[in-house]
Each structure stands twice: as structure tokens, then as C-alpha cells.
């Protein structure tokens, strides 16, 4: 059994389990699935600074912080004990395209020549970690949700604004992949 779990999981097993998170949260306590809200609660808890968006009692939404803390622990468990840090078998074509951009490390879930701790104080780190992170945080809050809140929860509840958001997520991602990333990789 453990041997099976240690293999990479197929898309349909993952899809079903993630989809079941929607009813699990609803039935456990009427919680709509959504993860980017946790970032808002952290702002409200640590640095509300009289900003209207952060003026609420974040403790009432503490479930969301417990949920993301759980995700972090789950990541640790999978990485340490369930063989989660193996090389990812991406499509050969994608791998060739990434090599053409200059990537060399394909040994684990993230390319360490971009996301290794040695990159933190480099221009590369500044772009991939700081700029990328700012876009993720700013964009999800502006869009009022992320892949979980809009693309999974919102679409599950047939919300058309979530479909608009999801299409824009994808358009932004395609633009970033095909236009911005080649420019970024030319910088170093």
C-alpha cells in the first residue's frame, strides 16, 4: 500500500480528492473552499493599518489559517515520508523548451537553479520569488479569489464571475509563459 502511495498520483485521483474538499468544507462547517483569503487574514492579523479591507475580526476566519497550516504540514509529510520530492516526468517537449530557456535542474518538484535557497539574493530570486509573489498576492485579492476560490469553488457553484476570473488566470499565465519568461531568462 505504502509503495503505491509513494508513486506519483494520477490526475483523476488528485482531481477527485481535491473536488471532494468542496463538500468536506461545506459540511464540516459551512466553509467555502478558498485559499487566497488566508493571505488577507494574515494582513488583518499582523498589519491592518486602518485599511478598510482588513478591518474585521480575523479570528472568526481562523479556520482558513488552520487549513493552510495543515497544507504546509501535509507538504512536509509528503516530501519527507511519501516520496514527494522525486523528479517530475513532464512532457519531453516542455522539458526541451525549458532547457532552451536555460534551465538545467530537473531533479525535483521545482527547478533549484531558480527556486533554490542560493537564489534568494540574486536578480533571478528577486523576479521569481518577490515579483512573482507580489503578482500572486495582489492579483488574487483584486480578483477576489484564486484557483481554489474561483476555478474550483466558484465554478462548482456555477458562478459566472468565477468563469471570467478563471479565463483571465489562464490568459495571464499563457502571456507570462510565452512572452515574459523568455525575456526574464534573457536577463541572466
Amino acid at each position: 500500500m505504502l509503495e503505491i502511495i509513494k508513486q506519483p498520483w494520477s490526475w483523476y485521483v488528485a482531481g477527485i480528492l481535491i473536488g471532494l474538499t468542496v463538500p468536506a468544507l461545506l459540511l464540516l462547517g459551512n466553509k467555502p473552499f478558498g485559499i487566497s483569503s488566508s493571505l488577507k487574514h494574515m494582513c488583518a492579523a499582523c498589519m491592518p493599518a486602518k485599511i478598510p479591507l482588513f478591518q474585521y475580526n480575523w479570528k472568526h476566519e481562523a479556520w482558513n489559517l488552520f487549513f493552510v497550516a495543515g497544507i504546509l504540514i501535509g507538504g512536509f509529510v509528503a516530501g519527507q515520508f511519501l516520496g514527494g520530492n522525486q523528479p517530475v516526468h513532464i512532457a519531453e517537449r516542455t522539458k526541451e523548451q525549458l532547457q532552451a530557456l536555460g534551465l538545467t535542474d530537473f531533479s525535483t518538484l521545482l527547478p533549484l537553479d531558480v527556486f533554490g535557497t542560493s537564489q534568494i539574493f540574486t536578480v533571478r530570486g528577486l523576479i521569481f520569488l518577490v515579483f512573482g509573489g507580489l503578482m500572486v498576492g495582489f492579483g488574487t485579492r483584486y480578483a477576489d479569489g484564486c484557483t481554489s476560490g474561483h476555478s474550483i469553488m466558484g465554478l462548482s457553484n456555477l458562478q459566472w464571475p468565477s468563469l471570467v476570473a478563471t479565463i483571465c488566470f489562464m490568459v495571464g499565465g499563457f502571456f507570462s509563459t510565452w512572452v515574459l519568461l523568455p525575456l526574464i531568462f534573457q536577463l541572466f
Partner: peptide
């Protein structure tokens, strides 16, 4: 949802 969605998408791919 449009502007923020595009911005998040850019960050998602990075």
C-alpha cells in the same frame, strides 16, 4: 476579476 485575474495569471506562471 479581469484585471486581478490577469495579474494573478502572470504570477502563477512565474
Amino acid at each position: 476579476q479581469i484585471y486581478g485575474g490577469l495579474i494573478f495569471g502572470i504570477g502563477w506562471a512565474i
